[in-house]
Design a protein around this nucleic acid. Structure first.
Lengths: 354, 354
DNA sequence: CGTCGTAGCTTAACCGATAAAGTAAACTCC
DNA sequence: GGAGTTTACTTTATCGGTTAAGCTACGACG
């Protein structure tokens, strides 16, 4: 069993002190050029790997960011994670990932652990459950920068990067109405979370603007996943009173709705128009062309890291906590041009270019 | 700015030493029941969070596992990650995630960093590029347990958890042949990686067993992603000589093939049967019913953690490195019962239950 | 020529915990 | 009632680094 090489091992070999070796490796001007190079060469030869634990402990910087997401097997989040990783790596930071599985308690535990690991900053997208505010107070008290992305807690004074949820939702539903749809259902997310409330608000706004009533029996709240979409639409199917279009608060919800419809009747799944907030990355393969509100996913990850790093820098430059920044990204309504929307007379209209 | 609470702060408040406090918090029998409780209460009141860096440094255990995957926005990996997280959390370990983006150099850097962080063990699925063996030698030399999952390097003496790739591939292709298909293409993965070679070998075995020739022009190697599937099948389309079925080495490859076919002709995409190794989690929504080889994804994650933890335990129980374990999981051929396969006469056969 | 600055190291202290060894008082036990 | 155990702490050393403050020899400068 090979012992791990430490600074002191290199130092002894070269008749130097560990401090000199440490400095040499970090290109400290105290050390002469020749010594520096000799040290580096020797370190490489001996297979030295610095102990980041020790380094972080004494330097008080871990060069690590904590990333907490509610879910991972969801294109939106895995894309954000990817972007965050990329951006963090560029800046010399590693990331520690934690998945809360949409549960507030797990979210709490994970943040606790990340704090204990002394991450330099946190990127968080909250779970769908009522959050445990105490843990965020704790973050604040420990003076660790935190940036929410996508799903935030609005009133805790942390920075955030989000999309214009209400606008995006409103524009999508506006579009449906302009195309002649009148009977529009909304499978909403959780009202515990801002994005759930905002997307719903956008939906209602659009309806009201056009003088349409909000059909309470067609607005169903719940989670953000496929299961919720499926269950919710099954409830609608059971009433027998069907909408012409469905605005789904997330892509997975849309999938669930679609599945529920198809199971019920294949013809139907071509005549009820689905619009999802967010996309799945598989739109081309998705049987029926659906509209979607595109979010700048990778940019969200990048911007979140950017804001967080700025706060970290501000912090160790000694500047006291500045006002939180709130970055709001625009969305874009995507309509596959080759495909007609679902017709209003209930007949299939799917005639992709072939 | 709140100072962070340390053991010594609690100790001073209670007129104890930090060692006693440390022991009290860890329920060491040295400390009386009353003191223990007093300490815990005080610690909670003061908002104490242990510094895991310091703890890990002195105890030589970080209680952290490093997880390296080639890709994250892919159902297979995000599912494994999820399972790993769950299992690791249960056992009191955190995970540090790193994504190599299918590049050997990034993989190297990430592993280097994880070693430097002194993770207690590593879980790795290698990138599609020729791996840098030196880094794995380094892992070995540092005596850090490592378990490969899904994609491994066969001859480096590390444990692994994989699926029976060759068998799964062979059974799938066998099935196609039994159904009467004869002209079967294979869009293979990278031959740098064992799973790429094995799946291809299974495909060829099945053909040979049935006395069919291996159609070299229909076997195209490359990456594991959608792009490769798309590009590869476009090449086949250009030749004008089309197969009756395609065996795709991964689900994303299958999607790419499907896209290429649909773009070319919608009718065609219902008459060329696609079989994928692995699934996307969206099979129900996938336009044409395709066969797939189901991998026990979550189980792979669980088993990998299990094997790794066993090695970690063995290590700090002082037992010397035992022989590596190789867990091979069985796959299952999934054929959606409601849906007929693509007909051999080239006419659409898609008539899902409605 | 004495003083100051500086290049190039070294020494000492510390980061925040754990591990191992030491100690004083109380408690057993024949 | 004195030796041996326990009980409940304390003291000292260590983990592998970093930071801050010495120290020394050499060259420049007024």
């Amino acid at each position: 069993m090979a012992k791990r090489v430490r600074l002191i091992d290199i130092a002894e070999r070269l008749n130097l002190t560990k401090v000199s070796v440490s400095k040499a490796l970090r290109d400290h001007p105290d050390i002469s050029k020749e010594t520096r190079e000799l040290v580096k060469k020797t370190a490489a030869e001996m297979g030295y790997t610095p102990n980041l634990l020790a380094r972080s402990l004494s330097s008080r910087r871990s060069n690590t960011l904590g990333l907490v997401v509610p879910k991972i097997a969801h294109t939106f989040f895995s894309t954000v994670i990817d972007a965050v990783q990329e951006e963090a790596t560029k800046a010399g930071y590693g990331i520690v990932l934690a998945v809360s599985s949409e549960r507030a308690e797990l979210e709490r535990q994970h943040i606790e652990r990340l704090l204990a690991m002394r991450v330099d900053g946190l990127l968080v997208s909250v779970s769908k459950e009522q959050p445990d505010r105490a843990i965020y107070e704790h973050v604040r008290q420990m003076n660790v920068p935190l940036v929410f992305f996508d799903r935030r807690i609005e009133d805790m004074g942390f920075s955030s990067v989000t999309v214009a949820d209400r606008d995006g939702a409103r524009l999508a539903v506006d579009y449906l109405i302009e195309q002649g749809y009148r009977r529009i259902a909304h499978i909403a997310g959780s009202s515990e979370v801002e994005i759930g409330r905002e997307r719903r608000a956008g939906y209602e706004e659009a309806l009201r603007r056009h003088g349409l009533p909000v059909p309470a029996h067609w607005v169903i709240e719940g989670g953000f996943d496929e299961q919720h979409g499926y269950d919710a639409f099954r409830r609608i199917l059971q009433t027998g009173d069907l909408p012409e279009a469905v605005f789904a608060a997330t892509f997975p919800i849309g999938l669930g709705v679609y599945r529920a419809i198809c199971e019920h009747s294949v013809a139907l799944c071509r005549s009820i128009q689905i619009v999802t907030f967010g996309e799945g990355g598989l739109n081309e393969f998705y049987t029926y062309p659906h509209l979607c509100v595109r979010q700048p996913t990778r940019e969200m990850g990048r911007r979140a890291v950017e804001v967080l790093l700025a706060e970290i820098e501000a912090l160790d430059a000694g500047r006291e906590a500045e006002a939180p920044r709130h970055v709001v990204l625009e969305t874009e309504l995507v309509l596959p041009p080759d495909y007609p929307l679902a017709p209003l007379d209930g007949t299939p209209a799917h005639t992709p270019a072939g």
